[in-house]
Amino acid sequence: MDFNLTQEQTQLSDTLRRWIEKEYDFEARRAIIKSAEGVSADAWSGLAELGLMALPVPEAQDGFGASGSDMFAVMQELGKGLLVEPYLATVSGVQYLKQDAEKHAELLQQVAGGEARIACALGEAQSRYNRYDVAMTAKADGDGYILNGRKTVVVHGAQADHLIVSARTDGDPRDHSGISLFVMAADAKGITRSDYRTIDGMRAADINFADVRVQVASLIGAAGEAWPIIDVVSDYSCALICAEAVGIMQATYETTLEYLKTRRQFDQPIGAFQALQHRMVEMFIEVEQARSMAMLAAARIGSDDAEERRRTVSGAMIRVGQAANRVGEEAIQLHGGIGMTNEMQVAHYFKRLTMFGAVYGDVDHHINRFTHQPAFPQSA
């Protein structure tokens, strides 16, 4: 397959790169992280003006209907800029809304115009990476449902205008069946959000739902049949996380290379030492292998073959996760102690790479998922 970006994707990447250099440089990002909300309304408006919010939205709802490969180009650049805005959370939410696009057309149009931000409240304290492990309940009540439970580590949960929430309408807590999805206003009565900063500068929240009432129209898909939707959208999010990580690794490699050219020891740049050159070559190989797997995952997330999609996405999460650890650790070692200080951009790259897989599954989780696909040979 062709791993080169198209002309349109390259143009979009270049435009986004220039915007980041002008409006979202390292110092601007540090100021945003230290702010009370942890995100920037001006940056969100800038992303919307560039058309990024409309990119994944269907054309029928005023979007562009972008492919996975288009989103790869965007996420790679956002990774290089270490964006802390709720972009990934919102575009993941768009994928859920697209399952019932006509019903939720108004919200999709608001997202496309940059007027709404979404967070996906799926994880619970006991569930770890298993999104089917849902203890939160949604009890039928007249023309709606009453939701009770708690969601944890909801990325940008406190910055969202709308939440997409999984809750159990039937079955036992670890059943794949009986899970339903609802979309609701984030400030609905009965919702309380506890906001905090994560180690990589992002924001997350623990959210309590106490007798939160929603209408039947809030359902995404059919009641009790949400697991296939969650499975598909989780893979979509994984593919985008891989693309973001590739962008971060590329920036980490370039920053480290520049440092080796300027840091001097024994009257010469330390980059002249052959042992360090070998380590930089190994970093380069890690980045390129991760890029290839991430691009493959982005191309396959729209596949009708669920087994192929799961296998490819988990394969990408494994390879990118391994590369993220290697590249991040090498960068810090090659910089020395100064690489751990907040004044150095490489420290922020390292923190984000360290968090890779924290939400949608680490390397061990995806190895287990990959090896349990039907096409994987099982031992006798």
Rank of each mutant, 00 (worst) to 15 (best):
E258T: 13
I191L: 04
I179L: 15
F3R: 07
Q7R: 14
I33Q: 14
A347Y: 10
V134G: 08
G201T: 04
D362K: 11
L107T: 10
G144Q: 05
M1L: 11
F376H: 14
S13K: 12
H366P: 08
T152N: 11
D200K: 09
S379A: 12
R311L: 11
L122K: 06
F72D: 13
S69V: 07
G201L: 03
P58I: 02
A226L: 10
E37Y: 03
D100G: 09
E102H: 06
Y236M: 03
N208V: 07
Q274P: 04
I199Q: 12
S67G: 09
T312N: 06
I229V: 15
L147K: 06
A223Y: 01
L47V: 07
Q265N: 10
A375C: 13
D195F: 00
E27H: 10
L88N: 05
Q289C: 02
D305V: 08
V327R: 03
K189C: 02
R264P: 01
T10V: 01
V346F: 06
S166V: 14
L276M: 10
R319L: 12
M295G: 06
F64Q: 15
A306G: 04
K22Q: 13
E225R: 15
G201F: 04
K80E: 12
N368A: 08
Q265C: 02
R128G: 08
W44N: 15
R18H: 05
D305M: 00
T371M: 12
A226K: 08
Q9N: 05
T255G: 11
H365A: 11
A48H: 02
L353R: 06
R30S: 11
N342H: 00
D195G: 03
D267Y: 09
T312E: 11
G337L: 09
T192F: 00
A205E: 02
Q9S: 05
G46S: 04
D143T: 13
N368T: 13
T255A: 15
E37T: 15
E288W: 00
V214W: 02
D362G: 15
A217G: 13
F182K: 14
G38N: 06
Y87L: 11
R326D: 04
G221P: 13
K351R: 15
E258V: 08
D200M: 10
I199G: 10
G93W: 01
F266N: 10
A43M: 12
A116K: 12
K151D: 03
I199T: 10
I146F: 00
E8G: 02
Y129V: 05
E115N: 14
I207D: 03
A275I: 06
I338Q: 15
E115W: 01
F209Y: 12
L296I: 04
G361K: 02
K151W: 04
D195V: 02
A125M: 00
R300N: 12
F273T: 03
R30L: 14
Q126S: 12
K103G: 09
G201D: 07
A54K: 06
A125L: 07
G247S: 05
Y132G: 09
D172Y: 00
S303N: 14
A380H: 08
V134I: 14
H365Q: 11
E21W: 03
Y349M: 04
D211G: 07
G171L: 09
A138L: 09
Q11A: 14
L122W: 11
T15M: 08
R17H: 11
I241W: 01
A167R: 09
G81L: 03
Q110P: 10
